[in-house]
Simulated scan of single mutants.
Amino acid sequence: MNGFVTRSLDEIRFWSRIMKEHSLFLRLGFRCEDTQLIQEANQFYSIFEQIEAKSHAFTANADPRQIEAFNAEVHNAASHIWVFKRKVLGLILSCKLPGANNFPLLVDHTSREANYFRNRLAELNSGQLEPIHDAIIDENVFFLKIMADHAKFIGHLLDPSERKLVDQAREFSHDFDQLLWQAQDLSSMRPQSQTGPLLSQFLDQNRVSVASLRDFKKTARDLIEACRIKSIIHPLLADHVYREAERFLEIIEMFESSLTRNAPPDLSDWH
């Protein structure tokens, strides 16, 4: 089994679905008169739907050269959707889309994920993944910010009358802001902070908090799907943020396993 192939396909299968769903969520937030933006969002939905389908047509035994070419193709698509998202953010922040329903932070959030995706594909094709101790900090800084954002979005998209759930979302937002600042502090102390005991405690603390948020998201998703709570959260968005928490947990567990073995992760570890 080729680690480069399995890792590349895993990244593309996960993130192409995320990019496809971003296209849908952005489209739903545009005004009916924003026909050009709606058309562009629909085009990106179609592009990433095709990429997702193509990724599932490959197997772990695929020719690495084919996968390298596929990675480059997907990198190009991810770069284009990143440009689109930044353009939309600029329009919102310059008050050119009054009345639209996409939060600026949400658009920025989706653009950060597109940038993460394209950077990972570039790293895979160059064969230059980060050393494990750097990857532990950088992945956590990225995903802790994503989780903090999710808590804020949930809190703002629940109906204000859902006071208990809104309070829980705010508590998660506060907790993950704190975890993010801790991660940024650990990052600024590099390389001295990259000791086994410190990184192990860092991962353990984050894993507990992410698991708790994941469970909250799962409960919210199930309640939304059963129409048992009041919100303007699309059921697919509820599942979307749940899957990203699951992804973060898998990454943390992979890092913990690598620290326990005292060895760098193989390319095939993340699948």
Rank of each mutant, 00 (worst) to 15 (best):
F153H: 10
F103Y: 15
F176E: 03
E123A: 12
G155H: 07
Q182L: 03
S94N: 13
L121Y: 01
L106Y: 08
R163C: 10
A78P: 02
S79E: 11
V74I: 09
F117C: 04
L129F: 05
I146S: 01
R112L: 10
H80W: 08
S94Q: 12
N140M: 15
D175R: 15
I136W: 00
N71M: 03
L165T: 08
L165V: 09
Q66M: 14
S161G: 11
L180C: 03
V107D: 00
A151H: 06
A151R: 04
F176H: 03
D167Q: 14
F84Y: 13
L179T: 00
E73H: 14
I132A: 09
W82A: 05
L180A: 03
W181I: 07
N76D: 12
V74H: 03
E162Q: 12
A169P: 04
F117S: 02
S161D: 14
N61W: 09
D159K: 08
A151K: 05
C95K: 12
K96Q: 15
L124M: 09
P64C: 09
I146K: 01
F143V: 02
V141Q: 05
D177P: 01
I132Q: 07
R86W: 03
P104Q: 12
K85T: 06
F103E: 05
H80Y: 11
Q66P: 06
S126L: 14
H174G: 07
A169L: 05
H109F: 15
S126C: 09
I154L: 15
Y116T: 05
L121Q: 02
F176R: 02
N102I: 10
L165E: 10
S161H: 13
Q128G: 07
E123P: 00
V107H: 01
F103H: 10
P104V: 08
I136Y: 01
F84S: 02
L165H: 07
M147Q: 10
L91V: 06
L91W: 05
P160T: 13
S94C: 08
E73I: 08
E162L: 00
L144M: 02
L97V: 04
L105H: 05
Q168H: 04
G155F: 06
K164S: 12
Q66H: 13
D63C: 14
A122L: 15
F176D: 00
P64G: 06
A77S: 13
R118K: 14
E130L: 15
E68L: 12
A62P: 11
P64D: 07
D159W: 06
D149L: 00
R112C: 10
A135G: 00
G155Y: 11
F176C: 01
A100R: 12
F153D: 07
T110H: 14
R65Q: 14
N119F: 10
A100K: 10
E139K: 07
R86A: 06
D159V: 06
L89G: 05
A148S: 15
E139W: 09
A72V: 11
F117H: 03
E68H: 14
C95E: 14
I132P: 02
N76H: 14
L144Y: 00
D177I: 05
H75Q: 12
A78F: 00
H75R: 13
D175I: 08
E113A: 01
F70N: 08
P131V: 04
P131G: 01
F58M: 09
L180R: 02
S111N: 05
K96E: 15
S79L: 10
